[in-house]
Amino acid sequence: MDNNKLLEIKNLVVQYESDDSVVHAVNGVNLSFRSGETVGLVGETGAGKTTIARSILRILPSPQAEVVSGEILFEGEDLLKLSEKEMRKIRGNKIAMIFQDPMTALNPIERVGDQIAEAISLHNRVTPAEAEERAIKMLEMVGIPGSRYSEYPHQFSGGMKQRVVIAMALACKPELLLADEPTTALDVTIQAQVLELMKALKKQLNSCVLMITHDLGVVASICDSVAVIYAGEIVEYGSLADIFDYASHPYTKGLFASLPKLNSKERRLKPIKGLMPDPTNLPKGCSFCERCGYAKDICREKKPETIEMSPGHYVKCFLIEEVQNG
């Protein structure tokens, strides 16, 4: 194990409790990030992507959600063991998050510049004037003229708002940025602008980014490595090339097959049959076995182990060889 890992998630298990059932949202996730790396976390609705990000920041809805076990090591320190006071120093400072909906992430009755300045003065000993100056710099960095400092969120368009949210998240130069579907609510041309901006800023600040998305296209354009999550488990992890050229898990393969491609002439897609299993009642064996075309008895009986197929390419499946041959 190399020790330049910025964040390491070990065997994370998170559950939500409702009246009469337990939702198994995250089931033993292992993930690690190096500084300056962009990791894509890809999966469907309800796969547990957002829960992982929220667990890192410890902003899970309480009391329903509970981290049952696991460790989240940030610079060698377990975030889950920190006091709330210590955690507050990290939140927004060393680790920041961008939410999916820019409309709700901003306070509608506060000037956007002030919102950024507030984030700065919360974690840094600066005078109000300095905070304002830095806030203007942040706005300009994301391509918004500093003169719009005193405007209110409703005066900005969706794309501009998301830029403000990004500026706010980056204001304290976080080492880790959790981006939860930051472009899903935006139009394609605006999405392209925001993705370009995130790429440029990441280079500039050398932050590590966890990019949560369901869009493999976004992953291809911005990430260095990819984790594919299904029913709260990472089923495949590898570099961009590992996943896009040598997808090995049947689920990953299925995802690619169900995408309509711009350059193909096929008249029918190949969807993955069936639905995600009920997170309150997961199958005993591999959670994908119900939908898998290769599934055998062993898949229904036992949970597969994670196997390292090639250096850095991990797959959680019993039947890798068969899947690869057919």
Partner: peptide, 8 residues
Amino acid sequence: MSKKRDRK
């Protein structure tokens, strides 16, 4: 927000 589908 993901999950909690059954709790809708």
